[in-house]
C-alpha cells in the first residue's frame, strides 16, 4: 500500500578482536532476517529469511603511524538477497533490488 514495508525480525551481530602481540585486527558481522510468513493486503507471497556473513582483517604496520590496510569480504557465501527493508519483495510481479553478491575490497587508508 506504499505506506510501509513489513520488516518482521531482523538480527545483526558484529565482533572484532585484535589478538595480542601483533598488528592485526580481525572481525566479522552477520546480517540476518527471519522469514516473514504473512501475506497481508495485496501481497502475493511471503518473504524468505536470509543470513549473510561479512569478514575483515586489518593490518596496522608498526613502522607507519596512521596507516591501516584493510581487506574485507562481504557476503562471503554469495547469497542472493534483498535487504529486508527493500520494497516489493512480497509481490511475484516485482524483482526487488538485490544487494551485492560476494564482494572483495582492499583498502589502504592514512590518517594524518
Amino acid at each position: 500500500m506504499d505506506l510501509g514495508t513489513p520488516p518482521g525480525g531482523v538480527l545483526a551481530i558484529e565482533a572484532q578482536h585484535p589478538p595480542e602481540g601483533n598488528a592485526f585486527t580481525f572481525g566479522g558481522a552477520v546480517e540476518a532476517a527471519k522469514a516473514y510468513n504473512h501475506k497481508d493486503a495485496t501481497a502475493s507471497k511471503t518473504i524468505a529469511g536470509y543470513a549473510v556473513l561479512n569478514l575483515f582483517a586489518e593490518y596496522q604496520p608498526p613502522g607507519v603511524e596512521g596507516l591501516v590496510i584493510r581487506a574485507e569480504v562481504n557476503n562471503l557465501f554469495d547469497r542472493t538477497y534483498a535487504d529486508r527493508a527493500t520494497y516489493g519483495q512480497d509481490f511475484n510481479s516485482i524483482t526487488p533490488l538485490y544487494e551485492p553478491g560476494r564482494s572483495v575490497q582492499l583498502v589502504a587508508s592514512m590518517r594524518f
Binding site: 500500500m1 505506506l3 510501509g4 514495508t5 513489513p6 520488516p7 518482521g8 525480525g9 531482523v10 538480527l11 545483526a12 551481530i13 558484529e14 565482533a15 504473512h38 497481508d40 493486503a41 495485496t42 501481497a43 520494497y87 516489493g88 519483495q89 512480497d90 509481490f91
Partner: peptide
Amino acid sequence: LRASYSQSKIRVNGPGTDS
C-alpha cells in the same frame, strides 16, 4: 561483540500490510 535484534509489525487501517 555486539548483537541486536529488532522485531516490528506494521498495520494499515487495522490489519497488516504489504510493501
